[in-house]
Simulated assay, not measured.
Amino acid sequence: MASGPEPTPSRATIVDVATAAGVSRQTVSNAVNHPDRVAPGTLQRVHREIERLGFRPNAAAQQLRRRKTSAYGFELNPSGAGRVGHVLDRFLLELTVAAPAHGCHVVTFAPQPPNPMTGYERILTSGLVDGFILGDTVHGDPRPAWLLQHDVPFVTFGRIWDEPHMGRWVDVDGQAGMRLAVAHLLEQGYTSVAYLGYPAGSALGDDRRAGWLAGLADAGLADSARDAETVEDLTAATTAADRLLEGLGRDGAILCASDLLALGVLRAARNRDLQPGRDLGVVGFDDSDLAEVVQLTSVRQPLQEAAAEAWRIVHAKGTDLSLTALLTPTLAARQSSSRHPQSRGT
C-alpha cells in the first residue's frame, strides 16, 4: 500500500515530497542535489516519493542556486557592541580594496536579532551572495556550523574557538602580540607590567591574557602578575584602571586587551597626575586611528594580509587546518611607552 498523499492534478512541491517521506525539506533538497549526504534508506524513500508524486525540481531555482555572483556577505557589527575604532571596520575596508584582485565584491548587511542566522538565510536565499566572511567569532557561535550544514562557502576572521581542529579561518596571533608588548615595555625600563583585560570566558580576551602571562614568564616575572577585568566601555575601563594603578608605582606599565581599555588607563593616569611614558607605560591592542591621535603605543594587526588570506580561504574547499592563517602582529611604538632620557635623569 502506498504511503502519503495521493498525487493531485496540481504540481507536486518539495513540501509534498518531504511530508510524504517523513523528512525535512532540506533532506529532499540534499537527495536531489547532494545524494551523498543522505543515508541510503532515507535516500531510497525520498526518491520513491519523488517518482510517485511526479515531483520535478524547479529548473530556474536550481540555476539560481548554481549561478555564481562572485559576491560575499559581511555582517556589520555582529557582536552588537558599539566600540571605538572597531578593528572590523578596517578589516572590511581591506577586504573591499582587495576584492577586485580576486574577482569578487563584498555585500554588507545588518544583524537581524534575535536569531543570529536570520540575516544570513535571507541574503543567501535572495541569490545576492555565494558565501560569507564572518567577523567577531565567539564561543558558541552558531554561524560556522549552520553554513557547513547548508554547504555555503565561508571564512572567519577569528578562530572557530569551539572547533580547534577545524580550518576556514584567518586570525592574528594575540598571544604573540602581547609577548611582544611585554618585552617592549621591559626594554623601555618599566619594572612591572600589569594587565587590563576582559572578564574570563571571552575567547579573544583569554587568548590575549595568556600572551601577557607568557611574556611575564619569559622575563622571569610570573610572580609579579597583577591584573583587572572590565568590559569594553570607557567609563568602566577608567574605573578598573584606577584600581589597578593603586600601588603600581611610577616605574610600572599597564598592557591592555584593546585600545579602548587603554584609553581608560590614560584617563585614570591623568586623574592621578601621571604622565604616560614618563611615569607610566601604556600599551593597547588593535592600533586604531584614535591610538595614533593620542600617541598610544598599540599592537598592530596586519589587516591587509588578513584580507588577502580571507579571500584565498573562502574560495578553497574543505575544512582542514591547511585552510588557516595565523598572522604575526607588530608593535606601533608611540609616546605612551617611551621613557625619554630626561625622564630617567640621564
Rank of each mutant, 00 (worst) to 15 (best):
L321E: 09
T239H: 09
R272L: 14
A31W: 05
L92T: 02
W146F: 15
A101C: 01
E49T: 02
A236N: 08
T69M: 10
R37G: 07
S3W: 07
A110C: 01
G22P: 02
T346N: 05
R179L: 12
N115I: 01
A269N: 09
G318N: 08
H150T: 07
L234E: 15
T239K: 09
P57Y: 11
F74G: 04
R66F: 05
A257F: 03
T319P: 05
P5K: 13
R52A: 14
A236I: 03
A237Q: 04
F55T: 04
L148Y: 00
T239G: 02
A237N: 06
H315P: 00
V38A: 08
P276I: 12
Q63H: 01
F285M: 09
H165K: 10
W161C: 07
A253Q: 05
R25P: 08
V28S: 13
A219H: 14
A237I: 13
D286R: 00
G127Y: 09
Y72A: 12
G80C: 08
E94T: 04
L221T: 05
V283D: 03
A240M: 11
R250W: 03
H139L: 15
V17Q: 12
C104A: 15
T8D: 10
L76P: 01
Q304K: 04
L216W: 03
A306L: 05
A39R: 14
T96N: 09
L134E: 10
R65K: 14
L260W: 01
Y198S: 14
S202E: 15
A217F: 02
I123V: 14
H184N: 13
T13D: 14
A240F: 08
Q342M: 06
Q301R: 10
L76Y: 05
V231N: 07
T235A: 15
S24R: 04
G215H: 07
L88W: 02
R267Y: 03
L248I: 05
V265M: 04
S126M: 06
L326I: 06
D171H: 05
V38K: 03
V129D: 09
A228E: 15
H340G: 00
R52P: 14
Y120G: 04
T8A: 14
G345Q: 11
S337T: 04
V28W: 11
H139N: 11
G345E: 13
E229P: 00
F157G: 02
